[in-house]
Nucleic acid binder design. Structure first.
Lengths: 195, 195
DNA sequence: ATTTTGTTGAACAAAAATGTTAAACAATTT
DNA sequence: AAATTGTTTAACATTTTTGTTCAACAAAAT
């Protein structure tokens, strides 16, 4: 699975070769087709797993009891950011595949949307409760989630451009700073006393 | 050529099919191979043309006589921005191909670097002359060009993210505003009296 | 008018990639 | 111990894609 993920991310769906995946993974070519009939199925499994891990890291936040919603939001931003740190070229890959293979866009809608909707629903409930107590501003959970996703994605999309302009930059420091800035930005967004 | 460009941009090098390109272009399959022995050669021709047009739109600025260098820089920003407007998904495509096909990165270095170096040399000469007169700050032409490229690219890379957050946004207005902002940003950068 | 060049269609060769199958054997489960 | 499941090798079938060739004909150049 690791090798398959690498090959797909590096070469795209149409560029990746099942034979090479098998070879690099040290298993026989037949094996791949024994478990996954087609390249398409292998791909869906790999991407499904990725989404699964994203979902886990994000939705377990809502399982934490007795945590104020503000802290949960912070945790959400940080976990999403960390997921991106571990998968820095997943966004490029997805954007590309969505354009290159319309059927993949379908799959994404099918798989990713329910996860998002689930998170939106949970978040909305907690936000509404907290808003009643005056802890946060009254707001749309979907808007807030979109803000979180885009502000984080942004940091990773800009990174390569920055590094091409400043080739000697310290990525570690950059990511650390960006994550904190993003947290602050989102905190301001839900703070009832600002703006 | 138009169809080939579309197919390559939409499906990537490995996803594009020579048969489909021929079919869609209304020419016979044989014809493609009559003129371009291989898919690789066709690709190189298409991308070469693209680069050529970028080069023309950019370097003809230096041919304009009796134009102050500050105005030439403005013209440079605007022309590069316009080129990107006409080729909005070229950046995504190039970033992707560079990662997916290392040999393409080589080709880019071979083809694009000389163009850049040529522009840098011309610009440096004019900047130096203008700096002596106190019209602009003393500065590196390569740095300035990198600033122009990255600030413009940025506007186009952010666009899809913005539109996903605000699906009803007015692109026409956005691009118009961004171009002017970028011009201003670069003008501030060469202004000898600021900072 | 003749030669060269461009173009097509159709068939086909070659290569590359995917997907299948069967025989043999190892590992695991029952 | 027997049955099931996992795995490999190696061959092979299929499909997809790329690249070639040739005969015929049109268009353009000489």
């Amino acid at each position: 699975m690791e090798v398959a993920e690498e090959e797909f991310l590096m070469k795209g769906f149409s560029g990746a070769r099942t034979v090479e995946i098998a070879e690099r993974a040290g298993v026989s070519h037949s094996m791949l087709h024994y478990y996954y009939k087609t390249k398409e199925q292998l791909f869906e499994h790999v991407m499904g797993e990725k989404l699964q891990r994203l979902k886990e890291s994000v939705t377990t936040v809502f399982m934490i009891e007795d945590m104020p919603v503000v802290e949960k939001v912070v945790e959400l931003v940080v976990r999403h950011f960390e997921f991106l740190s571990e998968n820095p070229d997943l966004p490029r890959f997805i954007i590309n595949e969505v354009i290159v293979r319309p059927e993949y866009a379908e799959m994404m809608k099918r798989e990713a949307l329910p996860i998002l909707e689930d998170a939106v629903a949970r978040l909305q409930r907690e936000l509404d409760a907290a808003a009643k107590e005056g802890e946060v501003r009254t707001m749309d959970a979907s808007t807030l989630l979109m803000d979180i996703v885009s502000v984080n994605l942004f940091s990773f999309i800009v990174a390569p451009i920055l590094s091409s302009v400043k080739p000697d930059m310290d990525f570690q420091a950059y990511y650390h700073a960006r994550c904190q800035e993003n947290v602050q930005l989102i905190l301001n967004r839900i703070n009832p006393d600002i703006k």
